[in-house]
Amino acid sequence: MILETQKLAKSFGGLTAVHDVNLHIQEGELVSIIGPNGAGKTTLFNLLTGHISVDSGRVIFKEKDITQLPPHAISRMGIGRSFQRLNIFPRLSAFENIQVAVFSQQRKSRNIFARASKLARHETEAILESVGLLDKKNVTGGLLAHGDQKRLEMGIALAVEPSLLLLDEPTQGMSPKESGELTQLIQKLVRERGLTLIFVEHDMNVVFGISDSIIVLHQGKILFEGKPDKVRKNEEVQRVYLGDERGTWSSLLRK
């Protein structure tokens, strides 16, 4: 088991965002987390990566307790993430966006005497190539198209060579074509690098297309987890989803 949480909980004021969540993620798994808005998906990611402090419960990664660690330490241990809202370094070039992360991975960030432009070129370009941005490497990050910025962000997360990658709505705001391409890219990267992947996604085609297992969150609790076809047939899940995403759900049931 690569990641485990025990009774993880977080509330904001009186509102319980995550309530006694127990996760068990196996190495190499491709897990998606779904649930209506406000189900606590992003909060869960923030707890796992140390972005916000845990109220109670534990997070265990590779058999080590990482519950109280700060983000940079968790990231150093091998959990990478992307964000729901775009999160790149807008005025650095695509190349530099990745390179900064590569420096961190290679423990070169503290080197103050070498010339950055001559270092880690090969590794940086390899990552740019794998996310399909090699031909745009000199473009300023903030000027890239939305889809390319999403790829760039994934590249930044990959550059620290995580063994567990958390992606928060990777296809958000993309056209169906772009989203399809990105899904393929994700699958390819996971297979090539032997990554474990947890992702939050609203596009049910993507979710049911690539997940090994699906976790359904509802009001901060795990409502159901299991293989895609079991989730599809589960009545409780249907009931939760019928409220706001009837269309998506019924189209999936017909498959």
Binding site: T49, H51, P70, P71, H72, A73, S75, R76, G80, R81, F83, N87, I88, F89, P90, R91, L92, E96, N97, Q99, V100, A101, F103, S104, Q105, S109, A116, I156, A157, A159, V160
Partner: peptide, 18 residues
């Protein structure tokens, strides 16, 4: 370069182990 990344997006750098 790392400093410039911090300027651009301090929050993000923490998640690349900075």
């Amino acid at each position: 370069k790392t400093l410039q990344a911090i300027r651009e997006n301090p929050g993000r750098t923490e998640f690349i182990a900075i």
